[in-house]
């Protein structure tokens, strides 16, 4: 089953064609890589999926829902969650609150239920938050303001927050940037855990150690255009890809 399908999507910023007629799909339970040199339109692709800005043409679908014209929060309710290339946490809130904010009750269910979620701490949401903090080894930092976390912890918190909304599709924008190899290992294990929860993942990443080991399929972008797609080891040997990365 296709979770995400992007068809003929383009996005222009002034003179820059950031995404050029892109096709991309993510299937259920799949971890799909999106790689390419800097400025090739990877983040823009994620931003288009989340509705940060509108696309110029094409269509993006999550399952059978056309995302065109949907607000960002509606896309979140449909099951899209993400992390950011430059970490964006709610700095003044505690670690616990950061995750709590995103728990699934927002805008789901009857009006009374929604209202209740605003005023009460349901046992279920508390458990969900605690579980996520456990998974990301942040339980002992629960009451610290997010802005006081270390870089690695902030990255983990962003992931935890993304998962709190119980997404069906998780978009990761360079989650391993700046990590040492041990942290990359941990991240890999967590991404597998996420997949085991039935969540599909679109992974934008430069760190080959991660991409090659974790993805089922890789798409390569260059100047906004998809230049290759395939299994990790096939991509590794692809001449076009090497040229895009290392120049001719």
């Amino acid at each position: 089953m296709t979770v995400l399908s992007i068809k003929n999507v383009s996005k222009r910023f002034g003179g820059v064609l950031a995404v050029d007629d892109l096709d991309l799909t993510v299937d259920k339970g799949e971890i799909v890589g999106l790689i390419g040199p800097n400025g090739s339109g990877k983040s823009t692709t994620i931003n288009l999926i989340c509705g940060v800005f509108p696309m110029d043409k094409g269509s993006i679908k999550l399952f059978d829902n056309d995302l065109k014209g949907l607000a960002r929060y509606e896309r979140s309710h449909l099951g899209i969650a993400r992390t950011y290339q430059n970490i964006r946490l709610f700095g003044g809130l505690t670690v616990w609150q950061n995750v709590w904010i995103a728990t699934r009750q927002n805008g789901i269910g009857s009006f009374a239920k929604k209202l209740g979620a605003l005023f009460l701490r349901s046992q279920k949401s508390v458990e969900a938050v605690d579980e996520l903090l456990d998974l990301f080894a942040l339980q002992n930092k629960a009451n610290i303001a997010a802005e006081n976390l270390s870089f690695g912890e902030q990255r983990r918190l962003e992931l935890a927050r993304a998962l709190a909304s119980e997404p069906k599709l998780l978009l990761l924008d360079e989650p391993a940037a700046g990590m040492n190899s041990e942290e990359v290992q941990e991240l890999r294990d967590r991404i597998f855990k996420v997949r085991d929860l039935g969540i599909s993942v679109l992974l934008v990443e430069h760190v080959m150690e991660l991409v090659m080991n974790v993805t089922d399929r890789i798409n390569v972008l260059n100047f906004g255009k998809k230049i290759a797609e395939g299994k990790p080891n096939a991509i590794q040997g692809n001449a076009l890809v090497q040229e895009a990365y290392f120049g001719s």
């Binding site: 989340c50 940060v52 607000a71 960002r72 929060y73 896309r75 979140s76 309710h77 969650a81 993400r82 950011y84 964006r88 946490l89 709610f90 904010i101 995103a102 699934r104 927002n106 805008g107 927050r161 709190a164 909304s165």
Partner: peptide, 9 residues
């Protein structure tokens, strides 16, 4: 932006 992408209207 982060709040809205976390599902808040």
């Amino acid at each position: 932006l982060a709040a809205e992408s976390s599902g808040i209207n």
